[in-house]
Design a protein around this nucleic acid. Structure first.
Length: 825
RNA sequence: GCCGGAGUGGUGAAAUGGUAGACACAGCAGACUCAAAAUCUGCCGGGGGCAACCCCAUGCCGGUUCGAGUCCGGCCUCCGGUACCA
């Protein structure tokens, strides 16, 4: 084989990447006359180099993008950089440089890596969230949200990561540890900025039932996170003094069984209600609880402990005097931070009551069983009939929930309410490398928005990175000191920056119009592209990014920026990349470097393997030999096409009506494969089976040795279609071979071929014959054989007779064109 | 505990309720070669049989059905999420 006939991925890949870039093949503009398709993969954090997760994510996306494009869609397929964040600061400290330098160098390198993969992005729309041109609009939105009360500041206990030295949102705490660095999270009382995502809790929940394009498990995770529960707020008057304790309960049907009250140790009334003689014990208890770290405090084996405050409140239904306790399992952040304790019907209250010898009253009686408080070993939490509940006795407890709620409302002692687990989104971060929150603090005027004329608040560059802790911004006098926009007196800038999840909550909108100078988004262009038709990324963002982005879309809709209710119509969550049974990670030492892979095999092989080895949603087991196999396959394609180049160039015009049996069979295989590949990509995203089908076709084509003029025409069609089918998966090699076959137009610009329905039709059918459901024989019959004939053939078949002779034929089931099942007994 | 998802050859996997294991990897045998690599061809779930074939087999136990990897019920195991949520 001569040198020019050898498959050298490096050469052809560079050639076509350059061609696509020069010709702006994948540049798109809004065109209302064409069907749009917005395809988006989650943009990467510029950590330094891409990893296999990126290779997989972007390979999957690229198949969809190239396929939809060939199908005639106006495809928006952008890429950019989630460029603010902590690692840049850490790197700056370590290397004595600047986060911006580190970030932009990484972007340059990774952009190059992505380009080497041959991805079909419109690079003209590239954005980096750390560019002022991007984050300036976020500041404007922040102020709009501030004016609407959707951004606000409050003093509260917040999650503090001592290692990152910053606050975390609830969603960013995993198992009591920081989502990024895994340090144990502490509770700290601080004044912080929040986004009022709870205002949208109901809508965020409702739409999870109207998003059929999302995986059910992501929707379930979001529903659980939002955590809506219906119940009542009930006021328990304090004994011997004014005021009341308000509780939230979903079990108002058990109100008559409430025998004591449990408050969170952090409850505002905790100390106020403590009598002088109990004071020492109570403060000691509060201290102990506060010192208990979050992991242990939320461990399920933590013993229920509490302390009596010395005060009492009154059950509004029974008039019973209820001792008020502080309890370590009551969470101040959920409900009202106070729980009416019904030990007979709540397991935690039960354990607590047993430990502190508190009274039990049964108020829900199960059918066919009598509960006795003296002998109960666990709380009864199932359905039953209300007892010891005055006027409600005899009601089914579910009906009782309604009745008690109505009664509480009528008496003014409580009301129906809905409670959410979702908390507001804390967005303040005590970091430098983020978007400055555009607020100025004045001793006279309080918090004042930076005026429009002063926007954007540019992140200053001349900052020292000492690694000594705290935000470098807070030490920069030239940044902090500013006159108050209202009264002109000396004031101070906010030095906190925004959570980087804020940038990723609207980047998909900015891609629609990345060059727009007139505001955050150009509504006409954004309306054309939105919503994202297909979003692809890792499952790890199920409740972080994906919830925030939904929230932002709704906020921006209500502020008039966009028209859609939801950002992502279809979501694909791809599986992890595994090697040797574990997720690829530096600490495991099982990382495969994409650069080395591409250098050795080329981008097409890297893409092909990551698409072939598993369907997109499943974890992908990386296997070097499998990669080798894909490389060999591409070599076979290369050789096969080269072998037939002379034949194809000399081929006659295809006339399907004059083909020999052999030629027709070959052509049938080609069109059947095209049908399968089309459906596998378009309807199912099953790229692995699509590729397998093409491999099968290759095996057929390699065996074909045809000599007639029409055979050349059949082969020409076969190779053209083979390359078109493979184009979305392995765009470089197919483009090169396409050109070598003599085509003038680029393969990427061809239309996805339609299969010839008549060519796919079989002439003979294989009919499976079963006796009592077991395979016994196969029949080959002409396509138009009628059912009765097939039945007769099956019954008279020699192999079948061996199993039916001497038995009675009870029934014969015929599935046309497929199968005959003879029931004999 | 609760909520998801998954259990199929040595491995990754494939199968609108209708031939279980396509395709590929690994392995074995052969061809080519002085030899090796590369490439090509064949075999490749287990058991029985000279063979045609037969029996068993999709985590386990039941059920529905002419027919179940697929649907239903009950278990077991693994993975992911979540957790004192009142």
């Amino acid at each position: 084989m001569s040198a020019e006939q050898k498959y050298i991925p490096g050469e052809i890949e560079a050639k076509w990447q350059q061609r696509w870039a020069e010709q702006k093949t994948f540049k798109v503009t809004e065109d209302p006359a064409r069907r749009k398709y917005y395809l988006l993969e989650m943009f990467p954090y510029p950590s330094g180099r891409i990893h296999m997760g990126h290779v997989r994510n972007y390979s999957i996306g690229d198949v969809v993008g190239r396929f939809k494009r060939m199908r005639g869609y106006n495809v928006l397929h952008p890429m950019g950089w989630d460029a603010f964040g902590m690692p840049a600061e850490n790197a700056a400290i370590k290397n004595n440089s600047h986060p911006a330098t580190w970030t932009y160098e990484n972007i340059a390198y990774m952009r190059d890596q992505l380009k080497q993969m041959g991805l079909s992005y419109d690079w003209d729309r590239e954005l980096a969230t750390c560019d002022v041109a991007y984050y300036r609009w976020e500041q404007k939105l922040f102020l709009e949200m501030y004016r609407k009360g959707l951004a606000y500041k409050k003093q509260s206990f917040v999650n503090w990561c001592p290692s990152c030295e910053t606050v975390l949102a609830n969603e960013q705490v995993e198992d009591g540890a920081c989502w990024r660095c895994d340090s144990e999270v502490q509770q700290k009382e601080l004044e912080q900025w929040f986004f009022r995502i709870t205002d949208y809790a109901q809508e965020l929940l409702d739409y999870t039932y109207r998003m059929p394009g999302w995986p059910e498990r992501v929707l379930v995770m979001q529903r659980n996170w939002i955590g809506r529960s219906t119940g009542c707020e009930i006021d328990f008057p304090l004994e011997g003094r004014d005021g009341a304790i308000r509780v939230f309960t979903t079990r108002q049907d058990t109100l008559f069984g409430a025998t004591f009250m449990s408050l969170a140790p952090e409850h505002p009334l905790a100390l106020e209600l403590t009598t002088p003689e109990r004071r020492a014990e109570v403060t000691a208890f509060i201290d102990t609880v506060k010192k208990t770290d979050r992991i242990r405090r939320t461990a399920d084996d933590l013993e229920k402990e509490g302390v009596f405050t010395g005060s009492y409140c009154v059950n509004p239904a029974t008039g019973r005097k209820m001792p008020i306790f502080l309890a370590n399992f009551v969470l101040v952040e959920y409900g009202t931070g106070a729980v009416m304790a019904v030990p007979t019907h709540d397991q935690r209250d039960f354990e607590f009551a047993r430990k502190y010898d508190l009274p039990l009253v049964v108020v829900i009686q199960p059918e066919g069983e009598i509960l006795d408080p003296a002998t109960m070993t666990a709380a009864y939490t199932e359905a039953g009939v209300m007892v010891n509940s005055g006027r409600f006795d005899g009601l089914e407890n579910e009906a009782g929930k309604e009745a008690v709620a109505d009664w509480l409302g009528a008496e003014g002692k409580g009301r129906k309410t809905i409670n959410f687990r979702l908390r507001d989104w804390g967005v303040s971060r005590q970091r430098y490398w983020g978007n400055p929150i555009p607020i100025i603090y004045c001793d006279c005027c309080g918090a004042v928005p930076a005026p429009d004329t002063e926007l954007p608040v540019v992140l200053p560059r001349d900052v020292a990175f000492t690694g000594e802790g705290g935000s470098p911004l807070a030490k920069l006098e030239s940044f902090i000191n500013v006159p108050c926009p209202q009264c002109g007196r000396p004031a101070r800038r906010e030095t906190d920056t925004m959570d980087t999840f804020v940038e990723s909550s609207w980047y998909f909108l900015r891609y629609c119009c990345p060059d727009f100078e007139g505001g955050m988004v150009d509504k006409a262009r954004t309306d054309y592209w939105m919503s994202v038709d297909q979003y692809i990324g890792g499952i790890e963002h199920a409740v972080l990014h994906l919830l925030y982005a939904r929230f932002f879309t709704k906020v921006m809709r209500d502020l008039g920026y966009v028209s859609c209710d939801e950002p992502f119509t279809n979501l694909l969550t791809q599986g992890m990349v595994i090697k040797d049974g574990a997720k690829m990670s530096k600490s495991k030492g099982n990382v495969v470097d994409p650069d080395a892979l591409i250098k050795k095999y080329g981008a097409d092989t890297a893409r092909l393997f990551s698409l072939f080895a598993a369907p997109p949603e499943k974890d992908l087991d990386w296997n070097e030999q499998g990669v080798d196999g894909c490389y060999r396959f591409l070599n076979r394609v290369w050789k096969l096409v080269h072998e037939f180049i002379p034949t194809v160039r000399a081929a006659a015009c295809l006339d399907p009506s004059t083909l020999s049996d052999e030629e027709r069979t070959l052509r049938r295989a080609v069109h059947k494969t095209l049908k399968k590949v089309t459906e596998d990509i378009d309807e199912r995203f099953h790229f692995n089976t699509a590729i397998a089908a093409v491999m099968e076709l290759m095996n057929v084509l390699q065996g074909a040795r045809l000599a007639s003029p029409q055979a050349g025409a059949v082969m020409k069609e076969a190779l053209d279609l083979l390359l078109q089918m493979l184009a979305p998966f392995v765009p470089h090699i197919t483009e090169e071979l396409w050109q070598q076959l003599g085509h003038d137009t680029g393969l990427a610009d061809t239309a996805w071929p339609a299969y010839d329905q008549s060519a796919t039709a079989d002439e003979e059918l294989l009919i499976v014959v079963q006796v009592n459901g077991k395979l016994r024989s196969r029949l080959s019959v002409a396509i138009d054989t009628d059912e009765e004939t097939v039945k007769a053939l099956a019954l008279s078949d020699e192999k079948v007779r061996a199993f039916t002779d001497g038995r009675q034929i009870r029934k014969v089931i015929v599935v046309p064109g497929k199968l005959v099942n003879i029931v004999a007994g």
